[in-house]
Amino acid sequence: MSLQGPIATHRMRTGIPTGRLAVWWGLASEIFIFGGLIMCFLLFKFNNAPGFEDADMTSTAAGAFNTFVLLTSSLSIVLAHAAAEKGDIQASFRYIWFTIGGGLVFLLVKTYEYSSKIYGGITLTENVFWSFYFTATGLHALHVIGGMVIMGMISFDVRKNHNLQRVELIGLYWHFVDIVWIFLFPILYIANF
């Protein structure tokens, strides 16, 4: 395996390979992006801004199904990492593409939700709740698309037995995307508290 090749795998000042440390730094910046959005949502919510009762109009079934899909894709990408560590590159390749498939299913459900809302006359400017809904879920969907593209690129390297450490790195990113959804799901779909 080409585990010792790239500098990202063996140069380390902190005891953590540089590539993985860089991903954690990237995720730290993402915490502020999504965390800031969620904090703003809560500020509006606790200030009794009108429109938040519209949370009843989102489809809990669609949101729960998408949570199931992302949790399952998180499982498959961590299994891809475990397979890569064992040197089973075929299994790793398959798990990566299973994960990409999960991302695709997620986006299809999201497209259905978006189109049903937009055709029903609900858009970004409807009220504060829908502004937040479209902004947060749209930004999250962009992250899903980005992750799928990167996974696709990595998968072909994996099949050639190159840069297997990248499976772990994209896995970290994908799990973070999953965690963001874990928080978006209750505030947008189920907890009209």
């Binding site: 005891g15 954690w24 499982l75 999953d178």
Partner: peptide, 15 residues
């Protein structure tokens, strides 16, 4: 997810 899937439980303190 963080502890098990992202292996945070095995990660260095700096993270």
């Amino acid at each position: 997810v963080a502890a098990k899937f992202m292996h945070l439980q095995f990660e260095k303190k700096i993270i």
